[in-house]
Amino acid sequence: MSLPDLAENASPWLRKAGPEGDVVISSRVRLARNLAGYPFLTQASPTQRRDILHMCRRRILDSNLAQRMLWVDLSESPRLDRDILVERHLISRQHSRGKKPRGVALADDETIAIMVNEEDHVRLQVLRSGMQLDEAYAQADHIDDTLEAHLDFAYSPKLGYLTACPTNVGTGIRVSVMLHLPALKLTGEVDKMRRAAKDMHLAVRGFYGEGTEAAGDLYQISNQTTLGRSERQILRDFAEVVIPRVVEYERRARIALLEKRPVVVDDKVHRALGALRTARLLSSEEALYLLSAVRMGVSMGRLDGVSMAGINELLLLTQPGHLQRMAGVAMSGAERREFRARYIRRRLGG
């Protein structure tokens, strides 16, 4: 696997819809760790920064964490490659835009991504399709154990794993679930969900995390508390309380919509598919909006001949970085809109 290959297809884990795939797009677990005996990155000297990078890189690549691991040296890679990694949720925007020595190790199926020298020395994440938090955590925990056998992570009995930002201290865990909630959005109940999540100290964000709008009715719910609650407790909250409830509300809202206003639903869904099949110019926001409506139609059984996996794939491949890699040239916003519309027409048989 190399970076150019990446842009041709959606992430392998995304191509198959996982458990609760009608509502849950993906599950993600991230652990933040820092090497003991070194300063955090804000105070690390250039030499220390390089030492940390080399040490972590060697440990990660020597650990047989996946069949194949690819190392990407981000200070050497072109902007477009980094954009593609951000679009695939393999690195953060912050990591993409950094200036200093840093990198990321990726498993060939893209379920594992380990950022080195982001905000913390090591940020390891495991991604799974659908609702698979337990599986994702089990793997993240295993990777953590494997790395820890050779690396000494900063830890205090009172505060747990020590992180650069005190809001991550303790378990250093961030559990995130990406949800597609078009019916709750249509019925206006999504705000209720937001408030309920806030009461449980959970953050609700858009497609691209912090500070982003919920484009395409995609919402990301994640924990904020990392101290005083164990990994298991946090996972249990998600798996037994939060996610099942949101999934149930969304499904109920979809059924209610179909019972009360089937024509409205069909109109929205078919109109969206029609626009995708015929448009000559599509911005990424509009594409996301239309794809979201089509995805809802597919999951509600209102559309034939369009697959959920295909729509999931388009959600990713029609983003700016991926389009430019496919086109093989850098494109302006206007050129991208045209290329995006053409690509979607071809994929959806317009």
Partner: peptide
């Protein structure tokens, strides 16, 4: 940091969860 941690983490100030093997 004490009050900041308390506010950021629902008033709890003691780690609960994974313990590294070396601890």
């Amino acid at each position: 940091l004490a009050s900041l941690l308390e506010r950021a983490h629902e008033g709890v100030a003691h780690h609960l969860g994974k313990v590294p093997a070396h601890a």
